[in-house]
Nucleic acid binder design. Structure first.
Lengths: 193, 193
DNA sequence: TGTACATCAGTGAACGCGCGTTCACTGATGTAC
DNA sequence: TGTACATCAGTGAACGCGCGTTCACTGATGTAC
């Protein structure tokens, strides 16, 4: 039994990690298996020792935001069902840093068009991430809005929509305005300060 | 001078028209020039008699929603600065028909990821369409919100975000709920009934 | 009215390239003895 | 402790295919005479 299971796991992680970065930046069709493997320090041929297909890798890369995203691992020290937490998430999501950091950014922003044209597995991965996001917002609703899952859907849609559009505009000033505006109205919808 | 100018214009229109349909469904990389020309009843070789590059065609196809979209040509007989018109646009935009009619749908929904990775000209086309949409909403704001361009940006982001995500989900019921919810909150944000 | 012709819309082969996937192989590894 | 070996991670050539773009060409057209 040569090579440890740990070695295999490590290599696999390297591949998915780099795939996520590349897919986020270039989209599904813009990234080749060569690209992914080279970024992981390997060559083309070994890919199918780890993944059944490019599509399966894609689905896994989309899910990576949940385990390696900025929000899940680091709550900024705030209780995860408080208005402050919602505010923190919104401001982080719509920050200039997230706008620019496409590599490690949210796949909901970088890949929706791609995903709409992909297979079931990929859409399910996308859905899982989206539900995680709306779940966060729903958990932070208080007062008369507690448990208002529709409201959480709307807030998430607003945040995602604003970022998606912002990244597709040529006018940087308008993109900035769009982010700021979305922060403001997301707070308004959630009744957060 | 063989062939009329009209003939040339007609052929050009055929190409862009089919390109729009195909791009909306398959994205930039998913459509080949062969595909576009074949759909227009022509062959590959003639393409460059009409367009400088695939990218230029893409930009033009994105803009087509403005002249051939459902909203501009047919206002449903409602004054275009009234709350009723805003309501009509929102309901049309988030309708099941628009959800399913990807071919003739809004490029803001079908292509944002693609566009973010495209060149300046394409992003400018995207921006033009987006501004047209926010302009409609802004024109319909009344009462205390008149001229509140930020509010119009937020409403547009919400509508676009909801549709973009809805198309990328596997769960059809959740997609439907997302559309309905966006209709509700877009009305709320615009203070429209 | 009829015909020769310049124009240019449209053709289809070709160029150089990259893709996803397969496969026979090499060689590093930890284990058994 | 040292060595032979089974395992399998990783290699790189190959397959069959499609891409964006170029180009020499064909042939339908309306015009000039």
């Amino acid at each position: 039994m040569p090579y440890s299971a740990e070695h295999r796991e490590q290599t696999r992680k390297q591949i998915v990690h780099n795939a996520r970065r590349l897919f986020n930046r270039q989209g599904f069709n813009g990234v080749s298996i060569d690209d992914v493997m080279a970024a992981a320090g390997l060559t083309r041929g070994g890919f199918y020792k780890y993944f059944e297909s490019k599509s399966k890798l894609y689905a896994e890369a989309v899910l990576l935001i949940l385990s390696e995203g900025p929000v899940t691992n680091d709550n900024g020290g705030i209780a995860c069902d408080s208005p402050d937490f919602a505010s923190y998430v919104i401001r982080t999501y719509l920050s200039r840093q997230h706008f620019e950091d496409i590599d490690a950014g949210c796949p909901l922003v970088a890949l929706p068009g791609d995903v709409a044209r992909s297979d079931t597995l990929v859409k399910q991965a996308f859905e899982t991430v989206f539900k995680a996001m709306t779940g966060i917002f729903e958990g932070c609703l208080t007062d008369g809005h507690r448990g208002d899952s529709d409201r959480a859907l709307a807030i998430a849609s607003l945040c995602i929509g604003a970022m998606v559009v912002a990244r597709s505009l040529e006018d940087r000033a308008l993109a900035d305005k769009l982010r700021d505006t979305a922060v403001k109205f997301a707070h308004e919808l959630g009744n957060w300060k």
